[in-house]
Simulated assay, not measured.
Amino acid sequence: MDIDDLRKIIHVAKTQNLQHSAKALFTSAGALSKIVKKTEKSLNTQLFDRIGRNIKLNEQGRIFVLHAANLVHDSDQLLSHFAAKQTRHSMQISGPSIIQDYWLERILPSAVCEQFYIHVDNCYEGEALTKVKHGLAQLGFVTGEALHNVENSEVQRIHLARVHFALAISDQHADYAELVGDLTLEQFARLAFACPKNSAFCGLQRGVGSDGWRDDQLPRNIQFRFNDLHPLLAMVKRGVAAAYLPEYVIQHEGLNALGSGQFQQEMTRPFEDIYLIWKPTLAPGWLNALLEKITANLAASQ
């Protein structure tokens, strides 16, 4: 039984699915099954109950995983302390693409990236939170909405920004010159909108457009619906439609925020808080050092 085997068993314990763990660990389900059986034989203890083709961690398994996680953590701390500075660590970062696409490069400048093999995992924030909690990702991007009722003992967080939203169009839009001033209700009614089917942050339906606009109080002319952010942005950039977007997306994509009429202030969500999260009890020394750099870089940029 070695540290690498312990990591794999911990992963299987979290997913309780050999196929899913095999895919994430770039190995085969058969190889993982052999590791589990070999470990159970060496301990003379069954860690998983077999139910048909499925496996389920039992009480002895839960005790084993608790001790195994501590051993893996101590091993990572030891290697981090004595390993050469040239050592490159593997790191997974999970979160919605609407956050990752715009914030990843801000927290990980090129000088930092050279120290790591970085696996970018685009997923909704609920899944990102679960992966960080279970040690399947070292870092995660989420909004404050996902962190309701989550204790600091489960995950810790760095506040990256408070993001406001605005109606946005491209300067390629046929009515751009008319719309860049204060937007009137009459102009708003004529606009064609592109909207997501589900929230780009959590993947759930949040109202008609799922982007935070109060369509129940002021319906829009929604002509396009997308299940992915990138084609939605392409439609807006070409001037075909307007969209309701976070201001950092508008700025990064070279779009233009429409004038803020009084009705806009009444129909919009006030803000969304963006956080970087990690699990302190599973953080090796190299991750703690990286988080110190991230915190320092963010403070310097403010």
Rank of each mutant, 00 (worst) to 15 (best):
V72C: 14
F193R: 00
K85H: 10
Q92P: 03
I107A: 01
L78M: 15
M235Q: 12
H148T: 06
G144P: 06
G239I: 06
S301Q: 11
N221M: 00
I35K: 11
L255G: 03
R7T: 02
R88K: 14
R157N: 04
C202A: 02
K14I: 01
A111S: 09
V163P: 08
N70E: 15
S210H: 05
W278S: 00
K279H: 15
D215E: 09
P219Y: 11
S153Q: 12
E292K: 08
I118H: 05
D2F: 11
F165I: 04
E292L: 07
Q115K: 15
E127A: 06
E105I: 08
G61I: 00
S80V: 09
I277K: 02
L104Y: 05
A161F: 05
N44Y: 03
I9Q: 07
D101F: 11
A166R: 09
Q265N: 15
L160V: 07
T295R: 08
E40Y: 13
H173R: 06
Q46S: 10
H252E: 15
G181N: 11
N44F: 06
N152I: 05
F263Q: 04
F64D: 09
R190I: 03
I93N: 07
E272M: 14
D49P: 02
W286E: 08
A84W: 03
N122R: 10
T295Q: 13
G140P: 01
L147C: 00
I107Q: 01
G212S: 03
L147D: 01
Y102C: 02
E151L: 15
L218C: 04
K56S: 14
E247S: 11
M1V: 14
D211A: 02
H173Y: 11
V240Q: 15
Y275I: 01
I9M: 07
L183C: 02
E114V: 05
L291I: 12
R214A: 01
V36I: 14
S170K: 08
G261L: 08
D121N: 14
S42L: 12
G259P: 04
N122Y: 10
S75W: 13
A83V: 05
A111E: 15
T27C: 12
L18S: 04
I118G: 08
K293T: 14
F141E: 02
R62Y: 05
L291R: 03
L139Y: 07
